[in-house]
Design a protein around this nucleic acid. Structure first.
Lengths: 139, 139
DNA sequence: CTTGAACCTCTAGTCACTATAGGGGTTAGG
DNA sequence: CCTAACCCCTATAGTGACTAGAGGTTCAAG
């Protein structure tokens, strides 16, 4: 019923040193140990670690995940709060997507404009200087 | 004609400690110094630092920026290489946007499903466990 | 009972900054 | 010329979220 840290890593896709790191920063509770001090986990850890992994992939910080876990431990906690944290993250993701799209189009513009032989005529480097503000040469 | 590090910071939007950090990691050449050891910059630094700042905002690593700067220093360098680096970054940005959009829709789904009173019925936490794989409770 | 993969702890490194402590320099007004 | 206010200096340590390495121990299969 119990299994090793390597097995937990396999089941969740979280690397072994990362699991130990999560334990150290108290994202994961201290597991049982064998007589020889090796960690032994059960299914509960798989759920919790999957939750953590997925939340990390969604861009939640460890701090935010700690909040969510603390909430989930108290079922009387209103859903509204969880919802709020998630909403904050959606707004954040939107900002990041928007930023990346602007950057993408700027880079794309730079690249398609770049059809010269020499770097001195290449638009990419020029575009990387803030466009519309400064097109000077850097020494 | 020359100005202080604070003035350079104001002109570029890069913080003073970050400018010193860039100098330390050799992204910026050593500036002139006053008799009292204070750094003095000229317009060339503004261009170069604007370039660095913008490239960082575009998601280029310091290492990639170093490449670009090295290229720009040798005008005989073929534009093709610069183009290639930029293309790699566009591909990278595309992957990041795609990832964020998946995450966004997952979060959105979780939030709109969350209309219960108590966390025990809240879908957000469930959705954060990997959907389709594990909906167990974590202790 | 032996072997070897997997485990253990501890420390240090990564990236790109940011913050702090404890000083010294520069400039404008009096 | 002096002082206040503000800027600047170095050096070190801290951040987040891991990742890597050294050097030693344990467990399960054969």
């Amino acid at each position: 019923m119990d299994f090793s840290i390597g097995e937990l890593a396999r089941q969740t896709g979280v690397k072994v040193p990362t699991i130990r790191y999560y334990e150290q920063i108290k994202l994961l509770p201290l597991p049982l140990r064998t007589a020889g001090q090796q960690r032994r986990y059960d299914a509960g850890y798989v759920s919790r670690l999957n939750f953590i992994r997925h939340a990390r992939e969604l861009g939640f910080t460890v701090e935010a995940i700690r909040e969510l876990l603390a909430m989930s431990a108290r079922p009387e906690y209103p859903c509204k709060e969880v919802d709020e944290i998630a909403q904050r993250h959606i707004a954040d993701i939107d900002r990041r997507i928007e930023h990346l799209e602007i950057l993408r189009s700027e880079l794309q513009r730079a690249v398609t404009a770049c059809r010269q032989e020499n770097i001195s005529d290449c638009q990419v480097l020029g575009t990387l200087s803030v466009p519309g503000h400064d097109h000077g040469k850097f020494p």
